[in-house]
Design a protein around this nucleic acid. Structure first.
Lengths: 344, 344
DNA sequence: CTGAAAGCGCTTACAG
DNA sequence: CTGAAAGCGCTTACAG
């Protein structure tokens, strides 16, 4: 060890104790919320700690208390703006309550997610938030056994003992269908969200039910896989023939942007020649270049619920799974014809 | 404790040892890369571990080894697509090498960042990556004392002992200026990146130096603060009079999108009526709605460098600060007039 | 209120 | 190669 390395000194509670002339336990108590210490002790310890630059080692605390104050967050792709927005809100909300996020990225296949969540659990995290990814029931069981609450964000998975927070996807899809019908469209296509996900299925189900109720056969229903490339390809397919849809409901905004890009490249003007409606209302949807009519998922309220649920489960040690569905609303912009006298 | 809580059993190495009929140390060695154990022992231990579902506790390991395999990442706003992209790449690269990201969000003021980094260090992280935020020299000193390497991503800060990874910002700004001059523009405005940041200053400096060299006074130079709202307001200001700029270099793509939205709202067509050039080349820049000409920061190579530097410093315990500047290139699209015969 | 002591789950010299 | 033991930096009963 040379001089430079020697400067890597980590100050411990014992050193603070020595300088303050108290026991190591006393130091610990001063830094433990809720523990009792006399005013004198507190003062001496705080002074010594300040002078030495002492800060408690969270990992050591975690070992003995069994609480790491770390929440594992699993996300798939950050390309869809919905996720960075959610992640930032999540991080802020958790930070404000003394927790922090250990982030894991995983391709959205159950196997990959399982591997990653295994890794996660090695860090003794207090809880898991899985954003738009699915987990196997085996892993669900492991988390349960380890007493680690799991909240699925923007994804529902029945019967596995997870909690989940979603927007009202079925209602949202239905609302979009009513809107397009009221607008007088009769060649309505759907580029659906990934049918391997609950959100994709629910939005589609709500949408199709309303069309069926109105005795209107959808012009086409295809799976856009929540992928920009796939959605673009679907849009090109839909435009291939001489007869075209007069409206397209796209399973999320991220895909809707791709669809609008394709329409314009074909010389069609969204909102005039063809109506496009998305789902999410990410910030980009309101930017001038797209100005997308879309069903808003209130991401801030979804995040609040998620944080409330997971912290409550952590802190009460009681992980009763619970499902929350947050209401949304249709946001009218220029990408789709607005029916006369339409009231949301 | 009721039955449900009793199931929260964490399996320890001692339990595995008991079942395998070996010592606890033996179990530890089997799970420690590089430690030696006989084939027999390995087999017995793996079998018992498998049966019990044992996984080593990373926190306990971190305590004794002094290595948490956690990297703290501080980011400001995730709204600019550059950051989610970088974060995802960073997370993947680090995960592949056995590290994970503890994420901290902080408004980009030195004070706020300092507070957050304090928190970070309590987790005994092995290193800090600060993405586009600045830290005080006081904190720099603390990190140094604690032996924690710090890498600034997309931001340079001289003389504090940090490492930093940036794109060639001065050259990039210069390249944009040459491009606009070659395109025959002579009323060239600059909505600069935040002048409190090295990237904002460097891009502007490179840009203005070339104009000055060509004896062209810039039409206007204003600070867009890296903010969508501010940049939009700047653009509206620039268009107010009867005489208008014929080109605008915007300090990053995120602001350039706002500028393009304003231009179009005013009935101007980017690339025809007025040239717009950005900086970054985020994915959205290539989407049809913007199709933005921009100087590309090769984010994948920036991330690679960042990961290499920080892991090398962690693993050799030797934190010689090091600065890396990554070359970029101008990407031509339709938002700016292309000079005849232009070769990058 | 306070200190001595045990213990959280590991890794790592140290003997054998 | 293997086990007994010390120790990482804390918290938390337990006596006083």
């Amino acid at each position: 060890m040379d001089g430079r390395l020697m400067t890597h000194t980590k100050i411990t509670s014992a050193q603070v104790a020595a300088r303050a002339g108290v026991s190591q336990s006393a130091v610990s108590r001063v830094f433990t919320p809720g523990a009792s210490a006399s005013r004198k002790t507190v003062e001496k310890v705080r002074k010594a700690a300040e002078e030495l630059g002492y800060r408690p080692n969270v990992l050591a605390r975690a070992m003995v208390s069994g609480r790491s104050r770390i929440i594992g967050v699993v996300v798939a792709y950050l390309e869809n703006q919905f996720y960075p927005v959610a992640l930032e809100l999540l991080s802020n909300a958790l930070q404000a309550r003394g927790y922090h996020i250990l982030i894991f990225t995983a391709p959205n296949s159950s196997d990959a997610v399982d591997l990653v969540v295994q890794d996660l659990m090695d860090y003794q995290i207090d809880g898991i938030i899985a954003a738009s990814v699915s987990m196997s029931s085996d892993l669900a069981h492991r988390a349960r056994t380890a007493g680690i609450p799991v909240v699925l964000f923007n994804r529902a998975q029945e019967g596995e003992g997870f909690s989940n927070v979603t927007a009202a996807n079925v209602l949202g899809g239905a609302q979009v269908a009513k809107f397009l019908l009221a607008g007088g469209h009769d060649r309505i296509a759907h580029i659906a969200g990934w049918q391997g996900s609950s959100t994709g299925r629910d939005r589609q189900a709500g949408f199709l039910a309303v069309l069926e109720n109105a005795d209107l056969e959808p012009w086409a229903v295809v799976d856009g896989m929540y992928s920009r490339a796939a959605a673009g390809a679907c849009a090109r397919d839909l435009l291939r023939g001489t007869e075209r849809p007069d409206a397209i409901f796209v399973g999320n905004d991220h895909m809707a942007f791709a669809v609008m890009d394709v329409l314009r490249a074909e010389g069609l003007m969204p909102g005039q020649d063809i109506s496009v409606v998305g789902f999410d209302d990410v910030p980009l949807a309101s930017w001038g270049a797209y100005d997308l009519t879309t069903f808003r998922q209130p991401v801030n309220r979804m995040v609040e619920s998620t944080v409330d649920i997971i912290l409550q489960q952590i802190e009460t040690d009681d992980a009763q799974p619970c499902s929350v569905e947050i209401e949304g609303e249709l946001i009218l912009r220029s990408s789709a014809r607005i029916p006369e006298g339409w009231v949301s």
